[in-house]
Amino acid sequence: MTNDERQAGARDPAFDAIAELVTRGLAGPLSAEDSAELDRLIETTPNGGCFAEELVDRWTLAGIAGDPRGTPATSDLDVPVTEEYAAVPETEERGHGWRRRIVGLVAAVVVLAVGGGLAVHMLRSQAVQPVLIAATDAPMTTTLQDGSRVSLSRDGKVLVRMEEHRRVLQQIGGEAYYEVAKDHTRPFTVETSGYRVTALGTRFNVSPDPTGTQIDLLEGRLRIETDRPGDQPVFLTAGQRFVGGAHPRIEAANPAAADWRSGRLVFNDMPLSEVAAKLSYYSGRRVGIRSPAAGKLRFSGVLRWDMPGDWSAAFEATLPVKVEQAPDGIEIVALAD
């Protein structure tokens, strides 16, 4: 890009390409091809490395993304000073100065408060604007551009792309509940843990359970696909649940699957070890199981993840356990131990 083009406000499309690859990296590791392309762009684009590092810095400081600079694609972001920035005074912290000026010229990462969470907008001309919506230390609900509503659990993250002919959301972390606005011209697709879940107008909950992604359909219809060759699409109707993993299956949906949004967690004959894991996940407090015997006990009941003071009484009233307080949570011990 020439100085005349810079002065006229023109923008090197390489910066858009860098922004696209860095944004894509939020959803997971880049492929070898994408990593090589990002390396090439950083090496050949004047100040491209500074620009990429600024994006990473802002996401990291916002608490939205882990610091991915240890990956090969972004581990070496220093680039030579171009003539345009040679006049920056030596007394200024030049690396940060260049990055701030580049971001101001070619793109902006805007961090917005959204119902207790954060949204990051990547503003780029002539391109779809991906938006990262992230809950922080509490669940949040937000309305998307198309009128759909997304509820995220604590630490939940969704990368949103509203395109002309489709709506694509990458569920990066946490649990999410979707109320999809009907738009038959633009399918609504959620990508998570190797699955693509497509709906036109529906309500469903996606939980990234360690034993297999769980998708509870409360209203409408869903099509679920994978990237594995030979896999056939799975269709759900209201009242069904899809459980992924090594042996995918369809079973009855949990009507209370989305009750976590209001603080309620419903447990039906669940091992205490799994109950403890869910309470820890939603509340951010540690619920320890000190003995294997306690973890195998089965619990049924309704607990509020936002009322940890009630957990001890519920466990001790229904199970042969005692609950001990710890600085960061509780410890559950079987009475037989």
Rank of each mutant, 00 (worst) to 15 (best):
Q214K: 14
Q126V: 10
V168M: 11
T192Q: 10
E93N: 15
G116E: 11
P210W: 06
V160E: 01
I224D: 04
Y177K: 00
E179Y: 01
H184S: 12
P130G: 03
L217N: 12
V150A: 05
G115Q: 11
V234W: 03
E175W: 08
Y195E: 08
Q232K: 15
E179R: 13
R228S: 10
T237P: 00
Q171I: 09
F204V: 08
D137E: 14
D216T: 13
H184E: 13
G239E: 04
A176L: 04
V206L: 13
D209L: 15
V180G: 03
S153N: 07
H165G: 11
D183F: 04
A107V: 05
L169W: 01
E164D: 10
V106Q: 04
G201F: 07
V180C: 00
S207D: 14
K157R: 15
R221T: 15
V206I: 15
R167I: 06
S153C: 02
S148F: 05
Y177I: 03
A107I: 02
L118T: 11
G239A: 08
D209K: 12
P139M: 03
F235C: 04
V206S: 07
Y178L: 14
D231A: 11
L132T: 13
L159A: 05
P210H: 07
A108C: 02
P130V: 07
Y195C: 01
G212W: 11
Q170Y: 13
R124L: 14
T141V: 12
G115R: 04
K157G: 05
E219L: 02
A134N: 07
G97I: 04
L236I: 11
P187D: 07
R94Y: 03
V197I: 15
G116A: 10
E219C: 00
H165F: 06
G174C: 06
S193W: 06
S193Y: 09
F188S: 03
R154I: 01
I133G: 08
L217C: 10
V234N: 06
Y195W: 05
I172P: 04
L222F: 01
S148V: 02
G174R: 09
E179S: 13
A134V: 08
T141D: 04
E164Y: 07
E219A: 10
Q145Y: 05
D209F: 09
A135N: 00
D227E: 14
W98G: 01
L112I: 12
R167M: 02
H165V: 08
L218T: 09
S193C: 01
A119H: 01
F235H: 14
V197H: 00
L169E: 08
V180K: 06
V109I: 15
